[in-house]
Design a binder for these strands. Structure first.
Lengths: 158, 158
DNA sequence: TCTGAAAATGGACCTTT
DNA sequence: AAAGGTCCATTTTCAGA
């Protein structure tokens, strides 16, 4: 049902780089007619391979000057407590990413905040006032060396 | 030069959620004519507020089943050594994100890989064979609770 | 804000494998 | 059948009045 060919992979590569390329330009790059490109992009979206199209906003241009990585260890791994935390984290607009991980920590969060005060307030709200947070650690980003969600869909293996 | 009004903020909000909304639909949502929407989106892109438009690909649908968070401590913080590492990390397609951080670690990486073998190979290439890596730690993501790059541009403060 | 031209999308239909 | 190509109508973009 869900096997991608080289056309699909090339399209995904291009459209991850620039989702605004018109379909005729995509067609020129991957060697397909615009109609075929149109059909494939629709199929990829329908199948959920392409989750969505989004504009990437530069946080520093809208006043979000700080990026923070926070690790969280929980007190109890009881399912409903975990689910509640996941929901809380997912809903928090400043949390861009939340991973539930195995290892020394239970959650890793990537946050974007305006300044340290905003982060301090968030730690109160998210960590200190949550009984199930045993401890957390903060790493402050000095440089966002690479930031993206691109998946490498090179032309080869499977 | 770069002050956003509520129209801009609403547009950014919408277009982060779905970059495919036509400009007339955006206009209806934020209460502007399509021409005004058109001009504003162009301006936001020109100013770099909108960095780019991209299709978000579901990694698991293209065979990238594992998400890994890796922390790296370096041996020396000599500028040229750091720059070399940054370049290496930035170029690695499986590294989605790389932050240079202050705190217990020097780098935090978010990686997407097909499987553990691929990650093991990457650790050889990126960490073990790099003299400037003192130590690294791996956290394996069991659940990608929230994954995005959205910046909260709600309607309020500055 | 409105109007209109140029461009892009997406369906219908036919052809190829 | 499954997928590509061509053609065409509709929608969208975007500049000028």
């Amino acid at each position: 049902m869900n096997s991608l060919d080289d056309f699909d992979r090339k399209l995904l590569m291009e459209v991850q780089r620039d989702a605004q390329l018109p379909q005729n330009e995509l067609g020129a790059r991957v060697n397909l007619s615009t109609a075929a490109v149109n059909r494939r992009l629709r199929r990829l979206a329908d199948e959920g391979v392409i989750q969505n199209y989004t504009a990437v906003v530069a946080p520093e241009k809208v006043g979000y000057l700080l990026t923070i990585i926070a690790s969280v260890e929980v007190e109890s791994e009881q399912i409903d407590l975990l689910d509640a935390m996941k929901r809380t984290f997912a809903q928090c607009p400043q949390i861009q990413q939340c991973y539930y991980v195995a290892g020394e920590w239970d959650f890793v969060l990537v946050l974007t905040v305006r300044n340290m005060d905003e982060y301090t307030a968030l730690t109160r709200q998210l960590f200190f006032s949550n009984n199930n947070v045993k401890r957390f650690k903060t790493l402050v980003s000095m440089s966002r060396v690479k930031v993206g969600l691109s998946v490498p869909v090179d032309i080869d293996g499977k």
